[in-house]
Structure formats: C-alpha cells, structure tokens
C-alpha cells in the first residue's frame, strides 16, 4: 500500500476508511508544534533512560540501551524529559526555538 497523500481523492482511499498499514503516525511530523526544544548534553547523561520512559511521543532516541539524542521531527517540546532528568545530572535543558 502506497502512502495516502494529503490530496488523495475519494477514488484513491482504501475501502471502509481503514489505514492498511502500521506505524503511520511516524509520517506525521509534529516537531513544528514546539515553542521550546530540549537540548541534550551527552557528556553529563548517565543513561538512566527516565526520559525515554516518560516521553509521551517516543522522541528519545536510544541505541543499545544508550540514549543517543532527540527525535526533533516528532518532539512537541513538552519538557517532561527535562523535568524528569535527575537534578544532579541535569543533562536536558529547554531552550526557546
């Protein structure tokens, strides 16, 4: 199934209005909703992954159990990651876009 374009006509839509594939929310970029962006400091990060657990948009990028950065295509800038980062570590700070 090819991607459903925003300008698709009724003739191109799947029967019954279903979405015949999984993970389609990845194509919907919510990154431009941000007014503040989280900035990650890899030097001080202890990779406790508390931010990864709490991020509502699955925007904490992790490889081999280590945090590698932030998915700015989908991060809406809610600031939860910065707020749950342990105060002694303080590896994420929010800055104005």
């Amino acid at each position: 199934m090819s991607k459903i374009r925003p300008d698709a006509s009724w003739k191109e839509l799947p029967e019954g209005g279903i979405i015949p594939e999984g993970g389609t929310s990845a194509t919907f970029k919510t990154g431009d909703w941000r007014s503040e962006r989280p900035v990650w400091n890899g030097e001080s990060c202890i990779h406790c992954l508390t931010c990864w657990i709490n991020c509502p948009d699955s925007s904490i990028l992790v490889v081999d159990q280590k945090m590698t950065g932030i998915d700015y295509d989908h991060c809406k800038g809610c600031g939860i990651c910065a707020s749950v980062c342990p105060p002694k570590v303080n590896a994420i700070t929010m800055v104005t876009e």
């Binding site: 925003p6 006509s9 839509l13 019954g16 209005g17 279903i18 979405i19 594939e21 999984g22």
Partner: peptide, 17 residues
C-alpha cells in the same frame, strides 16, 4: 498485518470517505 480500522477522520479525509 498491522492496520487501523475506524480511525479519527476529520476535515481532511471524512468527506472523501
């Protein structure tokens, strides 16, 4: 096979559906 049945369908696609 992953699929979504009965998703939210607003001004963008509802009319076409």
């Amino acid at each position: 096979e992953p699929k979504t049945v009965g998703p939210l369908d607003l001004q963008d696609y509802y009319f076409e559906h």
